[in-house]
Design a protein around this nucleic acid. Structure first.
Length: 874
RNA sequence: GGAGGCUUAGCUCAGCUGGUUAGAGCGCCUGCUUCACACGCAGGAGGUCGUUGGUUCGAGCCCAAUAGUCUCCACCA
């Protein structure tokens, strides 16, 4: 089979993907694990939102996972990369609501049932889109096991866990301050709040004492919440106010009588030292309220407008109310001072609306007991983060964790399996539907709320593998999983919750290692965002350059955990490399005669031995780097070795014998097949396509071929003294080319070369290389060269001469030699300093000292040669 | 306020447990359409590794301080 003349990915990418799928290579077989035949290697995908479109971040994340899983598959593990999508309750629901608004519909107008029908339609319509896009990337997921967080199995896991937690009293319902988003009209958890600096005011307001003996001045950034004030607090040790504690104030505007309480929460230094206490709209105030048994009065409704407790302000939006309240206070002469104040305001991660802390009855997961084992397992190193520094982030978050508000006032998601008796108020929590109160037989109503979307994501590593059926084959074979690959931004949302959930519900850590990667920024280092419009569409990139180039572009030059930039340079470089691989392969295939086996011949030339030995060195480094999840280094080494050592050196060296020597064609075939295997996890399509054209493949697929390993026996058998010295031949070629350039010898002019070397046998063998690659007329190798009338350059153990010639330019030659002299003199000085340092001799390791001495001696010789040449022309 | 990252060639970034002359890609300069590839080949120029101290025989790497920059966490009403 012949490769087409130019590399055009579209001719084969889809065809090859279909071939992989048909071959069953993606499909995991638990029997192989349960029988002990193979070790499992499982990765669960971070499930993309059903509403999502593939962006370059997905491309990055999934390329990394695919690289790992493909390597493991080739290494003989029973691999499972389990794909799926997330229902993303709030994100999806808000999109559906927005779409309905265009039709003039609201959730309420169509009702819950109709709404959910639409949502499922939405899921069917868009859920498949991102899956198709992941396939375009080449992701080798087991599509037969594709899951969805709201499918039957995942839902069962959610219900079971909820009920179990409830029975253990680790989940409770209560009134607490939650982050309320007035636009999404739901509570959100602490991690869903993003703080942003906002320019605001600090309003100083006078609250008169009931007894008319004066007033107290408080300072606030949210004057509208004063309508819900039920006290004013001062620090118990504040002498300014000690006499006032216990007295009563009259809250302006609505004339409620409120006490002055003492609480150490108040900072004497800040503001006026007196704090208005609004238990219903501030988390700290809520705590103060609990301590002092203060009433909780909500003054805003779910949409962020003032409610019936706000008196004349009822119905006004919170910001309009703020304006009016300030104006009214001013009119009453109670507004003492307004100072500009910048502060951080919590906003809804989803819609950007300023969050309103609000006292509300919600479901919470108690975190203290769940967090402890999740902290320990990371601290003991049993579950590790790569790179390690992200453990700090995780531990800091886990150690300061607060109870997790899991109920959402949304319809799209897992409905909370709690039922309340209409008659006696009894709460029943059950995995199965409840129709009547077990206590009084009265009618029950199911909690209308749904669970935080992350509640189901937290169970993903095991809910997708059969849990709660812990006897299922998949669960037994593939859980716990091995690695999780994700971005650092999602550690608190997802990773942490999977860890404590796994430990609590399955008794096992959900994975051994968490591989954290950075984000892809634009060429200027900015975050890619819709508003900036600086995003890269991976599908367009695939269209233009192919999926392999895209995959390569996102992993080139990455360091673990670090951000990386997307630049046009990178994708071009990636494409160019794939093209290079394509053409190098084409070159070999064009030269094959059909007799080749790809088996290494017994008789090998020095350059063959050098290549094979170096290639096995590269197998070792690449494998090691992948084991350490150092993907950027692994691919860097591989590309570098392929391009430079293989293409530029070995292929060029062997051009003289490729048509005449079947041995070299076998070495080339062998090397190329090793390269294809090493490259395959990174650029699967093109490597598979080329592989199919190799001789002796017999229809076998690269995806399931064996990953190369270092063959120590082979290396021991073939490596000899010349193998180690072969680099000197290559460097001599470069030295001669350089000398030719420096002496302005035209490329086409042939030149007579004399090489003085202790390695005469190897260099005599290599004479043909100098003839071809340095355009030599003749090459004389000896251990002693007459320097008369020649120009010299020193390269490692060699002194290389060419005739000074007619083009001899004395000035130029002097300059060249002086430059070399200066360089070598500097190195000699450096060595002398070192060797004259008695501490170096005494303390440095012996081989270090020996190496320095050898280097020193060689440089002295080199200097001598250059000086002689200088003398000769002067 | 707390934690962490980054600072190395004009640009983007590597640099493992400290050990010869600090690497790559792009860009730049010179030459080459050599029968796999100009998406290429050959050669070259370019860096006092943010700054200052310290540890060490030896520091891009370890320690301390400092500057710039980015991120995360907390959040004083």
């Amino acid at each position: 089979m012949e490769l087409s003349k130019t590399y055009s990915p579209h001719e084969f990418e889809d065809r090859i993907y279909a071939k992989w799928v048909a071959s069953g290579a993606f499909t995991a077989n638990p029997d192989n694990v349960l029988s002990g035949a193979k070790k499992p290697y499982t990765i669960v995908i971070p499930p993309p939102n059903i509403t999502g479109q593939l962006h370059v971040g997905h491309a990055f994340n999934n390329t990394l996972q695919d690289i790992i899983i493909r390597v493991k598959r080739m290494q003989g593990y029973e691999t499972l990369w389990l794909p799926g999508t997330d229902h993303a309750s709030i994100a999806t629901e808000s999109k559906i609501v927005a779409a309905m608004a265009e039709e003039g519909l609201t959730k309420e107008s169509i009702g819950r049932e109709e709404f959910l029908k639409r949502a499922w339609d939405w899921k069917v319509k868009y859920g498949g889109r991102i899956i198709g896009q992941l396939k375009k990337l080449g992701s080798s997921c087991d599509w037969s096991r594709e899951r969805f967080t709201m499918d039957e199995g995942c839902s069962r896991a959610v219900q079971k866990v909820f009920v179990e937690l409830y029975n253990k009293q680790q989940i409770y319902r209560g009134v607490r301050i939650v982050n309320w988003c007035p636009k999404c009209r739901t509570s959100i958890s602490d991690v869903e709040v993003e703080f942003e600096e906002q320019q605001g005011n600090f309003w100083h307001i006078s609250y008169p004492l009931k007894d008319g003996s004066g007033s107290l001045i408080i300072a606030t950034t949210r004057p509208e919440t004063m309508l819900g004030d039920t006290a004013v607090a001062v620090n118990p040790d504040d002498p300014r106010y000690s006499a006032l504690v216990g007295k009563t104030l009259v809250l302006p505007l609505i004339n409620r009588e409120i006490p002055i309480v003492a609480d150490s929460y108040v900072d004497k230094e800040f503001g006026t030292g007196a704090v208005k206490i609004t238990p219903a709209h501030d988390p700290n105030d809520f705590e103060v309220g609990v301590r002092h048994s203060l009433p909780v009065i909500r003054v805003m409704d779910d949409g962020g407008a003032m409610n019936e407790n706000a008196g004349v302000y009822q119905g006004l939006d919170r910001y309009k109310a703020r304006k009016k309240i300030v104006a009214d206070l001013d009119e009453l002469g109670l507004l003492v001072k307004v100072e500009p104040h910048t502060h951080n305001v919590g906003t809804c991660q989803r819609c950007g609306t300023t969050v309103e802390p609000t006292a509300s009855r919600q479901w919470f997961v108690k975190m203290d007991e769940l967090a402890k084992p999740a902290i320990d397992i990371v601290k003991t190193g049993e579950l590790k983060y790569v790179p390690k520094r992200f453990e700090n982030m995780y531990l800091a978050w886990m150690e300061n964790i607060r109870d997790w508000c899991v109920s959402r006032q949304l319809w799209w998601g897992h409905r909370i399996p709690a039922y309340y008796c209409d008659k006696c108020g009894e709460t029943v929590v059950s995995e199965t539907e409840v129709h009547s109160c077990p206590k009084c037989g009265g009618n029950v109503t199911q909690d209308p709320d749904t669970l935080d979307t992350w509640f189901s994501s937290a169970l993903w590593p095991f809910s997708t593998l059969g849990y709660p059926d812990t006897e299922s084959k998949d669960y037994k074979a593939f859980y716990p999983t091995q690695t999780l690959v994700t971005g650092f931004d999602i550690i608190p949302f997802w990773v942490a919750r999977m860890i404590f959930s796994g430990l609590a519900y399955t008794g096992k850590k959900p994975f051994d290692a968490v591989i954290i990667h950075g984000i892809i920024r634009d060429a200027q280092g900015r975050k890619m965002s819709k508003t900036l419009g600086n995003g890269i569409d991976p599908l367009e990139v695939i269209d233009k350059f192919g999926a392999d180039a895209l995959r390569l572009a996102v992993v080139i030059g990455i360091a673990p955990g670090n951000d990386t930039r997307w630049t046009d340079d990178k994708i071009l470089y990636a494409r160019n490399f794939v093209n290079k691989l394509w053409n190098a392969s084409r070159y070999l295939l064009l030269n094959l005669t059909g007799e080749e086996t790809g088996i290494l011949p017994v008789s090998l030339e020095p350059e063959d031995k050098w290549l094979i030995t170096s290639l096995h060195g590269v197998i070792a480094t690449v494998t090691e780097n992948i084991e350490n999840f150092d993907i950027g280094v692994a691919i860097g080494n591989l590309i570098d070795f392929f391009w430079k050592a293989f293409c530029d050196d070995y292929v060029e060296l062997t051009k003289t014998r490729i048509t005449t020597d079947i041995n070299v064609r076998n070495v080339l075939t062998y090397a190329l097949s090793v390269f294809l295997k090493l490259f395959h996890p990174f650029i699967p399509f093109v490597t598979e396509e080329i592989y199919s054209a190799l001789p002796n493949v017999q229809g076998k697929l690269l995806i399931t071929s064996e990953y190369p390993t270092v063959d120590k026996e082979l290396i021991l058998r073939i490596a000899d003294e010349q193998t180690g010295l072969f680099g000197q031949v290559l460097e001599s070629i470069t030295a001669i080319r350089k000398l030719r350039k420096e002496k302005d010898i035209p490329d086409k002019a042939k030149v007579n070369i004399e090489i003085e070397t202790p390695h005469t046998a190897l260099f005599e063998y290599s004479a043909k290389f100098f003839v071809k690659l340095c355009n030599a007329e003749s090459v004389i190798i000896s251990d002693k060269v007459d320097e008369q009338g020649k120009t010299v350059t020193v390269c490692l153990d060699q002194r290389i001469f060419i005739p000074s010639g007619e083009l001899f330019d004395k000035e130029k030659e002097l300059a060249r030699l002086n430059k070399e002299l200066a360089k070598v003199s500097k190195e000699i000085e450096f060595s002398e300093n070192k060797l004259n340092n008695p501490n170096f001799i005494a303390k440095a390791p012996e081989q270090q000292v020996a190496a320095e001495k050898e280097r020193y001696a060689k440089n002295l010789e080199k200097k001598d040669t250059i000086q002689k040449s200088l003398h000769a022309i002067q």
